[in-house]
Design a protein around this nucleic acid. Structure first.
Length: 643
RNA sequence: GCCGAUGUAGCUCAGAGGUAGAGCACUUCCUUGGUAAGGAAGAGGUCACGGGUUCAAUUCCCGUCAUCGGCUCCA
């Protein structure tokens, strides 16, 4: 019998008989690993443990602790979910059922079954029942014809649709129990590994992600190799929900929405306003030091402005309806973006190349008629304020300006401890250019400029095709919310089109007229969304410099009121946001209330402090920091304000 | 916009075909207490809105609006 050489991750090599399965190999090296291994890879191809090896190669085994193991586990779970659903709701049709970052889903056409009557606990019961039966996942290679025949007989048009895109000779089925699915695999050996399972939610999802197709029912679910893992997961989910900015926004009185004002139109309450103002102040100072000039433009603009920019044609449908005015033929739009206004500001007077780059910044409030189903707390609203700016520069300056903006964005993220962000370079769709305006050569240049600029930094960016704006490519900074939903915050966009449309010009060295390049950029993106994410990241415990309420003074008895008021006056004079709790309540009650309000500093004042001319500091979530003189307190506060 | 769920006091939630309840918050009174909830009393709701069924609807049905979970979209 011929032998093969198999190399292990520690680089050791062993000989095995050709045709040995991955599982036999793992069993030969470690019984304990064999018990928990879920899937293997050979020469970097991920394969079933039952796969037989006939060539030399490198082997690797994956357990639940590896991403490969988890996603295989969840992928297999999706098949069991399908089997459970099919047994309870005969005749359903299956779309796709992939693993995702936390669990898996299956898109299902429930046909004549009433979707609103789906009994998830019945499905869960059936699922766990199937797992206990220790059903093996068995792979079989099938011809395209046989595959088609199988699903034609079954009446599953969705699978037939999928098979159409596959090549003959590359089609495989997996079977477990009474269920066979079209699937390239691999899978875990059997259902016995799955010990807990829960359907998390149901949702509608268009077939193949296209809204012109039928809508299927997507079941989101998760499964684990141990029961307590599910409990931990659910607990973490509950914890994450406590950080939700919509919940905290209400509790901390940051903002709210009113039906009477309108859907998606946030109202900033005094506490939230303070956060906004501080972030704006911070950004304004950063921008001034980077050579930006701030401007103010109106909230509405002539419709013609947006026809010129091309935005009206592209987004007119998803804007608030134009405002008609009786006195002339013009119509006005609630400003959906600031760029046309800033282009007009550039046009106010002629410019020399010596002035460039000109950086025009504005905290501009814009209004967009977002689809009703898209509104989401403060992260997706219909009226929001961008920390917007437009940089007008020469073609040669683009890269340096992009780098400058990246610096600024990274500084902002760092200042607010956003260390978990993703950078995405959004380029044109590879095939379909019809969505974009302008000369393809200029697009190439703009795309190269962005990619080049990112290469000059330490930032790791992912290139995504088809995500560019209609006028140019962009670099987006994405951050996740407490429930792992990704949101775009900062953005940098290179645009060769808008300056042309607005006939922007500067005079170059040779006294000839040139068109500047426009860079759109916003580090926060939208203040609304940024504050939402910031709130979730710090769970409402804002850094001192942002915190709406910074200090609360808690006198123990009425005897300390006067002294407390005196301390408050001193802190007021230093512009700290200080409040005083004069209620006749026990100190523990006052402390609890201050903790719940997430006020960073509590100053507890009783007879001891009055006598020694001190205050007792209690820091939120940390506790008693002891008695200090007021001067010491002030220097502590000063230090804290810097972080 | 689409699929599904939800909408009861300021907040978090119970409840039932015969016009509503708890806890917290609020008001008043008592309590002057040293590091996360002192006690008592009181006040608070067209049960999202509009139709329909019924002797009777907040409850059942239909529609609208809003919110939530997704999908699609995102200048």
């Amino acid at each position: 019998m011929s032998k093969i050489k198999v190399q292990f991750p520690d680089n050791s090599v062993k000989d095995f008989n050709s045709g040995i399965s991955c599982f036999e190999i793992v069993k030969s090296i470690s019984n304990s690993l064999a018990k928990k291994v879920l899937v293997a890879s050979y020469n970097n191809n991920i394969i079933d443990l039952s796969s037989q090896l006939t060539t030399d190669g490198k082997i690797k085994f994956y357990t639940w602790d590896d991403n490969e193991g988890k996603s295989t586990f969840w992928h297999s779970s999706a098949h069991v979910l399908a089997e459970s659903v099919e047994s309870l709701y005969p005749g359903v049709k299956f779309g796709i059922g992939p693993p995702i970052s936390n669990g898996f889903y299956y898109d299902i056409d429930f046909c004549d079954h009433d979707v609103s009557k789906i009994n998830t606990s019945k499905i869960e019961e059936k699922f766990l029942n199937l797992c206990k039966q220790n059903l093996e996942f068995v792979r079989s290679e099938v011809s395209k014809n046989d595959a088609k025949t199988y699903f034609k007989d079954k009446g599953d048009n969705l699978k037939l649709d999928l098979i159409d895109d596959l090549k003959d000779g590359e089609i495989s089925f997996y079977n477990q129990g009474n269920f066979t699915d079209l699937c390239k695999g691999p899978h875990i050996p059997s259902t016995k590994f799955i010990k807990s399972f829960k359907i998390l939610n149901t949702a509608g999802a268009y077939w193949r992600g296209d809204e012109n197709n039928q809508q299927l029912t997507r079941l989101y679910a998760i499964s684990f190799p141990k029961q307590n893992m599910l409990e931990d997961f659910i607990m973490k989910l509950e914890e994450a929900k406590k950080r939700d900015h919509r919940k905290l926004g209400k509790e901390l009185e940051l903002f709210f929405f009113s039906d009477k004002v309108g859907s998606g139109l946030p109202m900033w309450l005094p506490n939230g306003h303070i956060i906004r103002e501080n972030l704006m102040e911070f950004m304004r100072n950063e921008q001034i030091s980077q050579g930006y000039q701030h401007v103010t433009t109106p909230h509405i603009g002539s419709k013609k402005l947006y026809v010129t920019s091309g935005h009206y044609e592209k987004y007119g449908e998803s804007s608030f309806k134009p405002i008609e005015v009786p006195s002339d033929n013009d119509e006005y739009l609630l400003k959906p973006m600031n760029c046309p206004h800033h282009c007009e500001i550039f046009n106010f007077k002629p410019h020399s190349y010596k002035e460039l780059p000109i950086r025009i910044a504005e905290f501009g409030t814009v209004y967009r008629y977002e689809q009703s189903g898209e509104l989401h707390g403060m992260t997706r609203v219909r009226g929001f304020t961008q920390d917007d700016a437009h940089i007008f520069c020469t073609i040669d300056q683009v890269k340096e300006e992009v780098l400058g903006v990246m610096d600024l964005i990274l500084k902002v993220f760092k200042s607010l401890s956003f260390d978990d962000y993703k950078v995405q370079i959004s380029l044109r769709d590879k095939e379909d250019f019809s969505k974009y305006i302008g000369d393809s050569k200029l697009w190439d240049k703009a795309e190269n400029d962005l990619v080049d600029a990112v290469k000059d930094t330490d930032v790791k960016a992912e290139v995504v095709y088809g995500e560019a704006a209609f006028y140019g490519p962009k670099i987006d900074f994405m951050v996740s919310d407490s429930l792992d939903r990704e949101w775009q915050l900062g953005t940098i966009q290179v645009d060769y089109q808008l300056p042309k449309r607005f006939n922007l010009e500067y005079v170059d060295k040779n006294n000839s007229k040139k068109t500047p390049v426009l860079i759109h950029r916003a580090p926060f993106g939208s203040l609304e969304r940024f504050i939402a994410i910031l709130t979730e990241h710090c769970e409402g415990n804002f850094p001192l410099w942002i915190s709406p309420k910074q200090i609360i003074i808690l006198p123990i008895t009425e005897k300390a009121n006067e002294y407390a008021q005196n301390i408050k006056n001193q802190l007021d004079n230093l512009n700290y946001r200080t409040s005083l709790d004069l209620r006749i309540e026990k100190i523990s009650k006052k402390i609890r209330d201050a903790e719940v309000k997430k006020i960073p500093y509590m100053l507890i004042i009783g007879e001891d402090e009055m006598k020694s001319n001190t205050v007792s500091i209690r820091k939120k979530s940390i506790g008693d920091k002891g008695k200090v003189k007021i001067e010491k307190l002030i220097s502590m506060l000063e230090d804290d304000m810097k972080s």
